[in-house]
Amino acid sequence: MRSAEAPALLDEIDRRIVNALQGGFPLVPRPYAAVAETLGLSEAELLARLHGLVASGVLSRFGPMFDAEKFGGAVSLAAMAVPVDRFDAVAAVLMDLPEVAHNYERRHPLNMWFVIATETPAGIGAAQRAIEAKTGLKVLLFPKVREYFVGMRVEA
């Protein structure tokens, strides 16, 4: 994997914080204080650690994760088989499309995998057709049929 990001050094407290904040964040006026208490930390220490984890990029973010479909939107995984000599140009096309949220190069004949997210379910097909028109390549859609698990468990 090509990445300039070096692994961060997390101590045991950081790891406990990341794991404790996977879900079930309290809906009370002082939620960080409530979580801090279960971790044996002060509210100020937990907030300082969280600031550090977000600032250093260990956490992409901390907050509510919404289900776009429940808000009327739609999301689908999609893939294309892109000729190697056109790969960067096609990646640039997707970079400019706001409907494309993530895009990864993967080692497979289907070598470009991306997420299409749109405000309406009809938007998925429209984005698929737009990408096909712009690139001349077939876009395969892999919308989720059922979700078994989404989350992250960090070794404590």
């Binding site: 879900g23 809906l27 984890l53 956490l59 901390f62 907050g63 509510p64």
Partner: peptide, 8 residues
């Protein structure tokens, strides 16, 4: 879905 941390 949840209120939580998204690790990188």
């Amino acid at each position: 879905r949840r209120i939580g941390a998204v690790p990188n």
